[in-house]
Design a protein around this nucleic acid. Sequence first.
DNA 1: ACGCAAGTGCAAATAAGTCTCATTTAAATT
DNA 2: AATTTAAATGAGACTTATTTGCACTTGCGT
Lengths: 146, 146
Amino acid sequence: MSAAENQQLKQVLREHELKATTQRIALLKLLDATHEHFDAEEIYLELLKKQKNVSRATVYRSLEALAEQDLVTRLDFGDGRMRFERSKGEDEHHDHLICEECGKVIEFFNLEMEAQQLSVCEENDFTPSTHTMHIFGICSDCKKPQ
Amino acid sequence: MSAAENQQLKQVLREHELKATTQRIALLKLLDATHEHFDAEEIYLELLKKQKNVSRATVYRSLEALAEQDLVTRLDFGDGRMRFERSKGEDEHHDHLICEECGKVIEFFNLEMEAQQLSVCEENDFTPSTHTMHIFGICSDCKKPQ
DNA sequence: ACGCAAGTGCAAATAAGTCTCATTTAAATT
DNA sequence: AATTTAAATGAGACTTATTTGCACTTGCGT
């Protein structure tokens, strides 16, 4: 039932001048199917589970290539390993609230904040490419139970 | 000429229940004296240069202890190593524009942005502790020369 | 089907940071 | 000032995340 999806992903990869290998397709499919923020090791293990042949090196190299083409996005939550998510369109951009207790990640988007960022860039004659806005703290679930 | 400074730093350390060791004092003095964002290795090498006896382990441990007491601030620019700066007061908080070309870091503060952050937290019943706002792009110096 | 550059797998190599443990030292106590 | 002791340090081994070298494989244009 994913033949069509495969075709579509092959298409996407080729459009970005990347060879459509089974590993890259499986990786994109995985990230497309989840809303979580996996790190490289988790992606590697997930792909293995699905009987796919992969090596860690390929996961890292694929993620790098895909990130370069903006097909996936790197997320740095400051805990020493990179996470990844399927890139959203410009319009679906979001930032993160990160619970220091349970690790949960809440996504948010605030138009006013984005506008202020552009204005700061302008003031500094700075041409922005990407940004990260991470707010660390305690989520509602973690503060309720004493 | 830094005897007074030493005394002051000893005082600060003791107020935070940290032993005022020569290593910690030298480290704070170094960060006080610069406006750069050193990583642990750079701090280690700088301290060595100044004929101070230190080991990497002590640099890491000191930075951790000092960060815990909010005497220094961790900065994560997403390139795989932590940077540090002497903590500023609440009122001196700032975020960063990071040039992807030359690595320059421009500090900025935008009150409206901070206000929006709090409002996002409120909306999500999230209690913030710290945040990082990094805008990556190209600085004015790097885009002028063709 | 053919050819070859791009991609992959494996294992060894790096890089940043952490840990162990014997020794030292700040600072509280006599 | 000498004694005590818990905290801090130094040296180096170790861990974890990621990168690299190299021989082998595979998309995909012809």
